[in-house]
Design a binder for these strands. Structure first.
Lengths: 196, 196
DNA sequence: GTCTATAGCCAGATAGAC
DNA sequence: GTCTATCTGGCTATAGAC
């Protein structure tokens, strides 16, 4: 929108197809798992012929990298929105868990998208991947909040709060029961209140 | 050993090959993930020719079911051993987490085998699978321990203790850091002591 | 830039000799 | 019961017309 005035439609369209491919890849890989998802699945979901995928991404792995980066961008945006909407660290921490718990219906069906990716990519020979950041970024953010509260073992608490989210997400999807996520959100809120 | 005296070697060998196949499938599927593991991988790990696999299991999915049942048997054996070794519910709960934390090195490399299976199989179209039991059995067991302690919301605490294990396992494998698992074990032990 | 057709490979599963 | 050879299909990736 703030780009060059020249050919906004053509460049816009080109970006559009690329974005559609990434969005479709996010959805389908999340729903089916990375290994089980074929490029034909993604192309079909994006409404793009299979062969054309390779104009935008040289390999399936390149597309996967773009998917991870998109997730990272979304996490960054969510944390920024929470900081803008809530002034104090305890409120921010509760807001983080609340925002995640709001997706309880989705989590019950498909699990946490970031946890799924980390577990699946952790089993690859590729070695450590960008996916680690999907967990590290929220942990670091939570650590800064606990530090701001003057809590000494802020890192441990940050690990614990994200682990409780990831573990509850796994049980929520295993049992297909969204209420687990919501119950844990209230429980974590009380825990944080008790710390302050 | 307590079977018929007739042909103990032949029947023993037959069972042996089947057991070797299942054991190899457990290891390889845990290390690589179910989808990425081929029957050729498993056959090679068991030292058995590919075509012979189909004498023991009609399909890859049949072999997967046997793998899940093996994990369930191991869980049952572990819980029984804990009950035999520890008399009181708090000790038993701490022993459960301790036993899981003892595998921190393995978890750091490959995650929790049961959580991995549930997350991967939860994404299948097959519908709810036996894998759910891998989580339900320990949750039910923990619930009975909390009930025996006279705690009113025993189910919630059981969910929480297993979720904390699963979440910590996911972070432990993501960060490749066994100390996370060990730290959480101590933390959970203090939490349980505070409940009694 | 876009799309069709297909190469090349590897998976699950089977046939049938031994 | 055991194993080799192979069928069939689906996947990633490419070639090349438009």
């Amino acid at each position: 929108m703030t780009d060059s005035v020249e050919a906004p439609e053509r460049s816009g369209r080109r970006q559009d197809k690329r974005e559609r491919l990434i969005a479709a890849a996010c959805q389908v890989m999340y729903a089916q798992g990375v290994e089980k998802t074929t490029l034909a699945d993604i192309a079909a979901a994006a409404g793009i012929p299979l062969g054309n995928v390779y104009y935008y991404f040289k390999t399936k792995n390149d597309l996967l990298q773009a998917v991870i980066e998109t997730h990272l961008d979304e996490i960054g945006a969510m944390l920024a929105a929470i900081e803008a909407a809530h002034a104090t660290p305890p409120e921010r921490l509760k807001a983080l868990f609340g925002a995640l718990a709001e997706q309880s219906a989705l989590i019950a069906r498909q699990g946490c998208p970031h946890g799924s990716l980390c577990l699946e990519l952790g089993k690859r020979a590729d070695g450590p991947s960008l996916a680690v950041e999907l967990i590290r970024v929220p942990v670091d953010w939570a650590e800064r909040q606990f530090q701001a509260m003057g809590i000494p073992d802020a890192r441990d608490l940050a690990i614990e709060v994200i682990a409780r989210y990831q573990g509850t997400a796994l049980l929520t999807s295993t049992f297909r029961d969204p209420s687990l996520m919501e119950g844990e959100s209230r429980r974590v809120a009380r825990w944080i209140d008790a710390l302050g």
